[in-house]
Amino acid sequence: MKSKFSSMSIKNLLLNYGVYLAFLIVCVAFSLLSPAFLTTANLLDLLRQISIVTVVAFGMTLVIISGGIDLSTGAVVGIAGLALTTVLEKGGGLLVGCLVALLFGVLFGVINGTLVTRANMNPFIVTIATLLIGNSLQIVYTRGGLPIYLMIPPKNFMFIAHGRVGGIPVPVIILLMIFGLYYLLLQRSSYGRYLYAIGSNIDASELSGIKYRKIVTFAYILSGISAALAGIVLSSRVMSGQPLAGEAYLLDAIGASFMGTIISKVGRPSLLGTMFGSLFIGVMMNGLTLLNVVFYWQEFAKGFLILFILLIWALQKAQREVVTGK
């Protein structure tokens, strides 16, 4: 262990701590360039902005821990919003609407999980297919993409995204609650232990008596639920059901989760890491907006940042394999 430390070159240092350094540089740069950046109001707003994508990313993190990926979250976010606003439009209560929305998340999770664990299909292919189907369902349902606007939005519906409890925006509270819940699940319960074991070595896990099919399917279900929850918050924020609203969050959620993997010492995805990744991307976007950079530059920056994250991830993985002599 010690000899490894002493031989750690600058390259290794950059590989392992470069992300923090980059984050620091970005933060300092933005606070110098824009006085509005480092204000309580802006930072709270930043948290509110990233809450939706972070909740999606938390669900995605669970699936990534299992060794898979869930691209269908992009569709679930939109579907949940449409489901909720439809129920409200038809005069249903908020609670019923939320339940229906969450049920769609469960449905997608069950389908994804079953296809991945029972039919042994590649998670990428499975979830990109459910993403495509989910997206087209939204377009068909909204007759070509017309959003569902509510004539008289219920007050409590608005509260989800715009309300505050004790000065803290409700979306931030939701974010923290999901974080706490998943954190306990991953770090303290046997479920989390099993999920990590499966992602690290599925054969050894099965031979240790872990029922990997159930455990992994549940991860996909939780991912679906998280995405649906994000969809509920999003539809409340825009006060309508927007088809394909989740597309924009998908890539950010993936990027945040992989960034989380990078900053972990053993290359293991974690909630804290995902939180950091999400913050990083959020700060980038928030700063660029404050600097009045046009949105399409932001898109490029995001793609670049994520490719950069993936690059470091792959290099770290290669380096670990050299160390362990695989």
Partner: peptide
């Protein structure tokens, strides 16, 4: 309407994918 076309395509993709190859154990990335 053109958006129906999207759904047809999505379902077609699923069908084609489902009929493609399988392996023994759950696939991980």
């Amino acid at each position: 309407p053109s958006y129906w076309m999207q759904l047809v395509k999505g379902i077609l993709i699923i069908l084609v994918i489902v009929t493609s190859s399988r392996s023994e154990k759950m696939v991980q990335i």
